[in-house]
């Protein structure tokens, strides 16, 4: 695993301090089709490559982060606070 996570608030910290929530997807509009919501809630791409995930720094700053991680090498390309930059790249 990406054992050292570069938290934008705390610096490099061991992964044990974090909780992983899962893929960071952009949320459909409240009135979107049931199919869009089904897609958003249940369907995942499982790519071999970079992947955006929500990580929570549970035992640190307690902020939600968006981590860009390579699923094969586990290299962390980027890590930002989820509150910075509202637009997510990976679509639903």
């Amino acid at each position: 695993m990406a054992s050292l996570v570069p938290c934008p608030n705390c610096g490099r910290r061991p992964k044990e301090e974090f909780t992983i929530k899962g893929a960071a997807l952009s949320r459909p509009a409240p009135g979107a089709d049931a199919a869009d919501w089904f897609n958003y809630v249940y369907l995942r791409d499982n790519p071999r490559g970079t992947y955006e995930e929500y990580w929570h720094h549970t035992s640190g700053c307690r902020r939600w982060l968006v981590l860009t991680r390579h699923t094969l090498t586990h290299e962390v390309a980027a890590c930002r606070d989820a509150a910075d930059g509202s637009q997510l790249e990976g679509g639903a």
Binding site: C10, R12, R13, P14, C61, R62
Partner: peptide
């Protein structure tokens, strides 16, 4: 703790939440 406690990385007055 996994925190870097070296004085250069964690000087006097600095705080951090960690395990």
């Amino acid at each position: 703790t996994g925190l870097d406690l070296d004085p250069s990385a964690f000087p006097v007055g600095q705080s951090a939440v960690t395990l």
